[in-house]
Design a protein around this nucleic acid. Structure first.
Lengths: 141, 141
DNA sequence: AACATACCCGACTAAAATGGTCAAGTTTAG
DNA sequence: CTAAACTTGACCATTTTAGTCGGGTATGTT
């Protein structure tokens, strides 16, 4: 069970964005430089964030990205979901007729993964981008 | 972020084992047939479970595996840890001098992953094999 | 003693996921 | 018109996953 870089990068980039986008759109190049993330990779990530209405893009010179909502309304669930960093519970074949692994009874672990998923998601649903920014400011003092 | 089959298999196999090992040692072949898991793969998994003192082996004809503790004392943490299904928070380079990604300040997400790790682990630390077996019985009614 | 049933162990591998890179655009401010 | 920025899609190397394979060794039963 592991978290991938994609999710981490997305969060880092959005925190970065949240700190600067009041003034101007923020270019990916800037984020790339500040956060040390490959520009090309950032583009892939932001493409997904855009499709999920988490950021808006402004094209052309002096363009860049802006948050499309209040940082308080962007929960980590949204971010992870956008970049496909979902909690995959290695689904026991979703053929609804047969149970897991093609046998009649539900596999023992079926409920377990459901519970876990809820447990984790409840964590991400509570945390917003705003929380992270506050946290960062506090750490600075 | 995902759970791998290895962890799921380990849990499934141990639940199976817990239900039959009062009578006789349980052979991997039986577990393989009942749970639909490749025998060769099971052997790899049980080798690790054994190293971590979760099961004991009895060799030879009529041999097999037995739990080495009470199901109540086997927490999911132990199982996952044994088969290397650990929660990896994509560690920001653990070079202690520099912060994450080689920059001076801790990356914004650093604390976040720590929190998440604790959150998930607390879930696994509470759940025991016993809990899962009980659950299964209840579902049968 | 022989045999079958089990565990034991290490090497190998196909397929998928990960973490990118690269190329060729389009859009728009200045 | 041109440079800065987004847009899209293909490509790729490496690592991880989920096994397979081929040989062992131990031991109860006949």
């Amino acid at each position: 069970m592991k978290l991938t870089s994609k999710g981490r990068y997305a969060v880092m980039a959005l925190v970065d964005l949240a700190r600067f986008d009041n003034i101007n759109p923020v270019s990916l190049r800037d984020i790339s430089l500040r956060q040390g993330i490959s520009l090309d990779y950032l583009e892939q990530i932001f493409s997904k964030l855009k499709k999920n209405h988490i950021v808006k893009s402004i094209r052309g010179n002096q363009g860049g990205y802006v948050l499309s909502k209040n940082p308080n309304d962007i929960k980590l669930t949204n971010i992870f979901h956008a970049v496909d960093e979902k909690v995959k519970t290695v689904q026991c074949k979703k053929d609804s007729k047969k149970g897991c692994n093609g046998r009649a009874t539900k596999c023992v672990t079926h409920n377990l993964w459901d519970e876990l998923e809820n447990h984790i998601n409840s964590f991400f649903e509570k945390k917003s981008l705003e929380d992270l920014i506050k946290n960062k400011k506090e750490n600075r003092l």
